[in-house]
Nucleic acid binder design. Structure first.
Lengths: 215, 215, 215, 215
DNA sequence: TATGAATGAGTGTTCATTCAT
DNA sequence: GATGAATGAACACTCATTCAT
């Protein structure tokens, strides 16, 4: 489950410096990409936002696309490390709820980054896409594990397919909070959103069947 | 609830011709946008794909962005008209399932278009965005109506918020089939996907609680 | 003995216009290349010298190197057509002298062009070089034919190798007038140069052996 | 007739070190220039080929052009010292032939260097050109001396102009072996080339006149 | 109405040169 | 003396848009 990186060649040798400069670069780029998208952002703007010259920028990357890759890669790592902090020892339903809730909080905190990730991944060329998709898979795998624990614990009775699909749903519903913010965040607070989603996720439509009618 | 259009000015008067030319334009553009995205597609390519010259193209639009708007608008209309065909007279759970299923089928059939819509909407400038978002809202409203009918019919006991959120979930889960195809369409057929989603949507996590434990 | 052309793709369709614009382009480029060489000349300078914008320039070529190819190709054609005018009916030594003399005159008249050809051919990439070298071979073949006629006529008794080498020598000695002008054109007029070269070429070193010593 | 050098300023004082570093620099540059030409070679590549850093490179030169000058200068010196080794004491025709032959051998041995010299001299700026042309003149002067000796010895009866021109011809015919290698070295060995050229040079066209015709 | 040649601002990228360490 | 990170002017090339025919 080791993270795979596509190395982005540099002219600079000092690895510490590379780390530092790239962090500056990424920070600036996220802001720009969020505002104008990758394609409408120029390399000069990236360099400026990062605080160095265009020449220096190109000491740390080879092409503009490298910036996008670096940005995506970094965001994934951040999100992942944030999610990893959550404790999912016991596989109880209550714990599952907490996990989902935590996941939604993380997404909310990193909304800008997630938005960028979400909107620009497809601008990556075919040869870096695999690296990025692998990351996505890792992340859904984390949600999957959360559910699987409940199954293993004997709390849930779900087959592998249902588990996988549920994990994906939770994942996408999390992102939805970010990419449909124009619709959601006007009408709901984060807490409301989380409660609503957990309700729907746990109860299912059937949970809302009118009992009165059954009598 | 009439559809609102942002008028795209033309130098040409003959409305029939406009209709025809734009249809050619849109058809060609969808293919191109799917392959290379809006930004990497040139106006020359659009003109060529549409079957006329660059000069003629600009007789029917003002800017490149107009093409994108026209494309998005057209796709919405198509999807909408496809969905409208479904009969949702009776508000039963069975009928709701059928409706969802039908919606997923539509998304699948128009996968290319939905993908384009989905990936390029954000490239629209701030001033056309409202028009497009309105369309989105119309579409989720259709799913909403499907559910609301069950509520009105006394089959479901859901408040407005839950209904809205559920509608959005279904909508996004539909799109998910398209935009996560790299992950989903390798592992599931459309039928499997639909069944799985309807299962999860209707049963909820609780539906999978181990009954044995209840003894 | 048909001339082979490497086609240089255009966005423009009107072949007459292509011909015209390229002629303008070539004329301007020769001046620039002579002054500063191919590498130090910018595409903008080429466009300006040709009398149109940078955008228009690129309607008629794909890369900067295309300009160089077009220039070289055109110069070859000009030189060749100039040489072809000379009448080399009879294969006499007198006629050979006239031919050589004529060749030198042509080189002198097209000095600028020849100089450019001579200095910049090697800047062409490997894939166009064959086209250009073929042209060179055609031209030496013309000089060769001039000599061969004398052999065929029974005036000279030379084998193929000697004929070929002599042709090459004459060819290079012609170019020499152009590329060593800094040394030659200070000390000799064209007529002097021609006379001197014809002397040396026809007499050979042995022709200058001291007769007195032979007595 | 002392060699004139254009001094290339240095930040380094230690003359031994300068000598050593520059030798490394020149060796590496010749290879690079031969492969890609002066303009397509970067200073970084030169530094790397020389075995030190870009910073160090600039301790020993001021501009990239200095490298070219140093390279050309060095090649001239080498060629010259190689030619000077030949013994041309006696001014006989046999000795002249030997001299020419030796000269051609030297050119052949130093083909790469000569090629570079030949192709890149024109890239030197106007202010160093005189230094380089002076070198060229020195070299033709050496060939000239070889011929002049025969004249002085009473073996040849040639005026100054003929001597100079003949020297230039021999010089250029030597270079021709290098710069027209694509045509010559496919068809002739060096020995064949030398024999052919000496034949033509000594006999002249008249030497091949058909004697039968004289009857 | 239709065409396609013309335009030039704008883009990604390179590379000779400098200078703090 | 040696290093290599930083710089930014300069370059080749693109492409949305216009307009004369």
């Amino acid at each position: 489950m080791e993270r795979t990186k596509r190395p982005v060649p540099t002219s600079v040798k000092d690895t510490q410096l590379i780390e530092k400069r790239r962090a500056e670069m990424i920070r600036g780029s996220v802001q720009l990409f969020k505002q104008k998208g990758f394609h409408r952002t120029t390399t000069r703007e990236i360099a400026k936002a990062a605080g160095f010259s265009i020449g220096t920028l190109y000491e740390y990357i080879r092409t503009k696309e490298d910036v996008l890759y670096l940005v995506c890669d970094s965001i994934y790592d951040q999100v992942k490390s944030r999610i990893e902090q959550m404790d999912l020892e016991q596989g109880t339903l209550e714990n599952l709820k907490l996990g989902i809730s935590h996941f939604f909080y993380v997404i909310d905190e990193m909304q800008d980054e997630v938005q960028v990730l979400y909107q620009e991944v497809k601008s990556l060329s075919k040869d870096v896409l695999p690296y990025v998709l692998e990351k996505e898979e890792e992340m859904t795998a984390m949600v999957e594990k959360l559910i699987q624990r409940c199954v293993d614990n004997g709390v849930l009775d779900m087959d592998k397919d249902h588990v996988r699909m549920l994990a994906q749903n939770i994942f996408v519903l999390g992102q939805m909070w970010g990419f449909r913010r124009w619709m959601l965040q006007e009408n709901f607070t984060l807490e409301e959103y989380i409660n609503l989603q957990i309700d729907l996720l746990f109860e299912g439509v059937k949970g809302y069947e009118k009992k009165a009618a059954l009598k």
